[in-house]
Simulated assay, not measured.
Amino acid sequence: MYVYLLTNPAGTVLYTGLTNDLERRLYEHSQGLGEASCFTGRYQCNLLMYFEALPNARQAIAREKEIKGWSRAKKEQLIAALNPTWAPIDLGTWDGGNSAAGN
């Protein structure tokens, strides 16, 4: 299970989500861009800034709820810890943050 944070190209919106298949879910978000009925479509959130793997659904749901309750500043700190340059994460080239996020 994965908890992830997306942003829009301007970096003005953060979206916290949960999935068991991160690649599929990111694809779904990218296909829904412009759909006014969904948050990520309305705000053009399709850039992966942060993600973490959790061992089971119970822990992932708890972590998602925890992060959703945080202030924007705290979410930004979480992102910066993994991805200090705020470069969109490409799962195809991601190496755990050693180069894709500028570490």
Rank of each mutant, 00 (worst) to 15 (best):
N8D: 14
Y4Q: 04
C38W: 01
P9Y: 08
L91H: 00
D21L: 09
M1E: 09
T19F: 04
Q59L: 15
T85A: 13
A73Q: 12
I79S: 04
Q31D: 03
I61E: 12
K74H: 13
Y4F: 09
F51L: 06
T40E: 14
A10G: 05
W70P: 04
Q31Y: 01
W86C: 11
N83Q: 09
I79W: 02
E76I: 04
W86G: 10
R42Y: 10
L33C: 09
S71Q: 06
F51H: 10
N8Q: 02
W86R: 14
A73W: 00
L22P: 00
E76A: 07
P9D: 10
T85L: 15
E23G: 14
E52H: 04
T40I: 02
Y27M: 11
N46K: 13
N20I: 01
K65P: 02
A100Y: 00
T40L: 03
T93A: 12
G97A: 07
A101R: 05
D95A: 09
L26Y: 03
K68M: 08
I61G: 08
G34M: 07
M49N: 07
E64H: 10
E66D: 15
C38M: 02
L48S: 12
W86S: 15
V3Q: 01
H29I: 07
Y27G: 14
R24W: 01
A53C: 09
G34N: 10
W94S: 12
E64C: 13
D21A: 11
W94Y: 15
N56D: 15
I67T: 12
N20S: 15
L5E: 08
L54H: 11
P88H: 11
T93W: 09
I79D: 01
N20R: 13
L14Q: 02
R42E: 11
G41W: 05
T12W: 00
V13N: 06
W70N: 12
A53K: 15
P88Y: 03
A100G: 03
L91A: 06
A57C: 04
L5H: 05
L48Y: 05
Q31S: 11
Q59I: 11
F51N: 04
L22R: 08
W86H: 14
F51G: 07
T12L: 11
R63V: 07
E76C: 09
N83I: 05
L33H: 06
L48N: 08
T7K: 06
G97D: 01
C38R: 14
A81I: 02
C45I: 04
L78P: 01
E23K: 10
G102W: 00
T16K: 08
I61Y: 06
V13I: 13
P88C: 14
A80R: 13
T19G: 12
S30K: 14
L78G: 03
S30G: 10
T85Y: 05
A81T: 03
L82H: 07
